[in-house]
Amino acid sequence: MTDLSEERRDTLQEMINIGFGRSMSSLADLLGVRIELSVPDVLVIRTEEILDYLIKVMEGAEEVSLVQQGFRGEFFGEAVLALPGLAGRELVVMLDEDAGFQPALEMGQLEMEALLEVGNVVIGACLGQFADLLQTSLSFSPPSVLMENIHSAYLQEVLRARPGDALLIHTKFRVDQRAVMGYLLILLPEDCLHWLYREVDIFLERMLG
């Protein structure tokens, strides 16, 4: 009952894909560009290994920008959008040219705001629809942004979670026509996996039935 079976893994992948697909056009409408997600990896990870995992997927990027956002509902956890350090500036240009997003802020702050906003909408679009497929809804905490060296002690401090296992859904995202790519990591702590697996099973039965 509590294991991540092959079947559940496939269903979760499918659900993230369907969910994100549903919001893709509104997202494109809002951002002025298409965002594409690759097929997600779904795995169980020990929480203390998350940073190492992140370092691995960032493929040698030293400076990274992370947008972090908590979500809560019948299931809960933390989503992290990880981008290479220079992506913030790209996003500012992208949002300005394509989306008419122009808050009157200084460059550094504008970069943070662009990261927060893209993080917020991508995380929201992905998880909101995922929750919808599970016939529930989520509320989100305000996102926060960190621009750090990936090896910094501060980052280790921030990403240090309660010890235990967590379900990690990890997908690469790419902005069409733009040199922006990054990773979306969704972390679901052990405590909510029982509920999640049950609902995933129900979803699967509904699909098959």
Partner: peptide, 13 residues
């Protein structure tokens, strides 16, 4: 458009 939350952070605004 997305049916999601949006935020204004004091730190920036």
């Amino acid at each position: 458009k997305l049916g999601n939350y949006a935020f204004f952070s004091q730190r920036l605004h």
